[in-house]
Amino acid sequence: MRRNITEKIGFGIVSVCMWITVSFLFLIIFFIAVKGIGVISWEFLTSQPRNAMTAGGVAPAIVGTFYLVVGSMMFAVPLGIATAIYLTEYSPKSYVLNLIRISINNLAGVPSVVFGLFGLAIFVKFLGFGVSIISGSLSLGILVLPLIISAAQEALLAVPQSIREASLAVGASKWQTIKKIVVPAAMPGILTGVILSIGRVAGETAPILFTAATFYIKGYPDSPFSEVMALPYHIYALMTEGSHPEKQTAIAYGCCLILLSLVLIVSGIAIYMRKRERSYHHA
């Protein structure tokens, strides 16, 4: 009898943990949505900030985040996929495989602010790109590289060996097999990884603090070498700089809601795609 009571209590505690975890998600979304929704309007999304950041819209920050996402993907996606192809298709010697695997794992664990410092020292100073879209994109790109590599690797490994063998048997070379057979088959999985990393890049702040972001620019950036406003950095700056905390907090709520919706939609799509992908493979 006693052990059944223990079981009830134990399972009760475990259930409470689950509900608390999930309620955090809804609390965060709820508070930000309730206070942010009033701020958002067509004008807020499409116009420039006015009156020292206390009025107007946040269009340049939205555009800036878009540039940074595109820039980092242009760098990280080809590199990540190429790395995954090498690791899965050309199956290098085991010590090479281990070396690269360990470095990917550790790169994934490096704190994001360290990528910012690396970007500052290498891209901003050493290569002379300055505080710019390109420096920020590269820093963000290195940050998500491990994520893209492991997603692409998983997708490539899920392609059945027999398809490769069939292609090689009819006389295709290794490269032809990879290009025409393996990569297209793995594409949905790779895409899921890319979408997930878009969500990650859009929300990262620390790597762009000293490499790309600025609180205010006039108009829109006109070259890859110009500074840029970005949604996450804008939230931070609104909360910690300036002299009208009340008005700025309201705008920050609006930015937060935009960023949160963006990330939630993007990761929702990725999670849905992966689910479909997995059920397809299991069927």
């Binding site: 998600l25 508070f31 929300g203 920050a252 949160l260 990330v263 999670i271």
Partner: peptide, 20 residues
């Protein structure tokens, strides 16, 4: 998926939530 979505919320949003 809910746990995964919680993981995908950017740190700046957590920071903002904590601060505001």
């Amino acid at each position: 998926p809910l746990v995964e979505i919680l993981a995908s919320i950017p740190s700046i949003v957590y920071g903002f939530f904590g601060m505001a």
